[in-house]
């Protein structure tokens, strides 16, 4: 019996000391975890942030069919570039890979939503940007 009392006492003591401090703040979990998860730095900034400096090209893009597309979708996340634009250049995509992600022909892609081409047939080895300007797409 004494052994049990000691054991239960020990458990209670351990429970007291080892329970994390923000336990049960909102529920049976560490309340501080919420702020810890929220503290992570976002990597993708926002179109508005890009447009603060690159206003003319953003305006051009936003007039065309690509207006819903974020700059960072092709150019990569911009959190470092915003801090220090000299040392952290944005990515300039090469080749046609980025275009094909959306515009390659696939029966599952709804025709009404997106223009598609059979890449090999349509471009005959040319790169998309030789004819199309992604910031000012035309049909």
């Amino acid at each position: 019996m004494l052994a049990f009392a000691v054991f239960i006492g020990l458990m209670l003591g351990l429970k007291y000391f080892l329970t994390p401090d923000s336990w049960r703040e909102y529920g049976p979990y560490r309340g501080k975890a919420l702020t810890e998860i929220a503290d992570k730095v976002p990597k993708y900034v926002d179109m508005e942030t890009c447009a603060m400096c690159h206003d003319s090209i953003a305006e051009l893009k936003n007039q065309g069919l690509h207006k819903l597309i974020q700059c960072e979708l092709c150019h990569g996340p911009g959190y470092l570039h915003v801090e220090d634009d000299e040392n952290n250049k944005m990515k300039i995509p090469e080749g046609s890979g980025v275009c094909i992600e959306c515009h390659a022909k696939n029966a599952a892609r709804p025709d009404k939503i997106i223009k598609q081409v059979d890449v090999a047939e349509h471009s005959e080895g040319e790169e998309c940007i030789n004819c199309h300007n992604p910031h000012e797409p035309w049909l």
Partner: peptide
């Protein structure tokens, strides 16, 4: 040990 300290019932 967390399983004994903060068991999620």
């Amino acid at each position: 040990y967390e399983m004994l300290i903060t068991p999620h019932l």
